[in-house]
Design a protein around this nucleic acid. Sequence first.
DNA 1: CGAGTTTGACCGGCGC
DNA 2: GCGCCGGTCAAACTCG
Length: 299
Amino acid sequence: MEKANLLNGHCFIDLNSNPMHSPNEYSNSEFEDSFTGDHEKGLSLKDTEDQLNRLKSENKKLNDMVANLLKNQNDSTRKQSSYEEEEEFPTRKRKRKRDDDDYSDFVEKKCCNQGCCEECWSHGRPKGIKPNASKKVLVRVDPSDMSLVVKDGYQWRKYGQKVTRDNPSPRAYYKCSFAPICSVKKKVQRSVDDPSLLVVTYEGKHYHHYHHHRSSSQSGTAGVSSPGLISGDHTASLDLRDPIMHRNMQRAIANCESKEIQEFFVDQMACSLTKIPGFTAALVSAISGRILDEEIPEP
DNA sequence: CGAGTTTGACCGGCGC
DNA sequence: GCGCCGGTCAAACTCG
């Protein structure tokens, strides 16, 4: 990366190595439904800045919601602990959430119902907004390789495996391992028709996942670190006058697989950038410098 | 020792 | 109500 970028425990975007185009990524996969984005069309700096401004305000709303969620989660944990202490013969087995627990209470009373969070979808989504669609991906693998591992570049934690009725090969269940509140999941199962194919089903807000949770092993020297590995350097240095930085940023966005992904790429950039102390000042400085400067010649 | 995986139990939806 | 089934949880385990 040309300039030290940001790390605040949430997002990290490597503008130097395009995170959407790892050399081998999806090279042997085929999407059941094709993207329709314009691959050649990039976003202008103004477009990007407009999106940043718009998304910054949306990001603030999300941050408030997360804060509320965490607060209620802490309250719920405290109550559950006291509940368990009352058990006469506590077992080592977990207790499943019940309908009348605090979480459900939170959803019932606090959900904004504006289609902006997981609760909204489960609680009754607004009209005209589609629920989170799942996306199937077929990945060709070595038939002799019986593992249900798909190297898609993201950080997953396996939480279950099950043999289903219509397929003798087990189905593996994965959750996003980057953030506890991320609801993205994927299922991996060998195709019953073609053992050399793995059927990967992504569920949840996977666009968010596309840009957030890259594993460092797949995104070059930078990429996403796990929360425990986040460096303490939160220094922001954003120089849009730097032609290399500027071009890399535009290329990274323009090369995304679809317009939707481009938009969410920008979204996640905004998410990342707005978390940096002093970012706003850096952005103002960068933009004003960009405006004042003459057109930057292509190197 | 922490993070990730395994695996059996548990839960809820659905059909009968 | 009962059984089946897919999905999820979490203690135990493994690994680096």
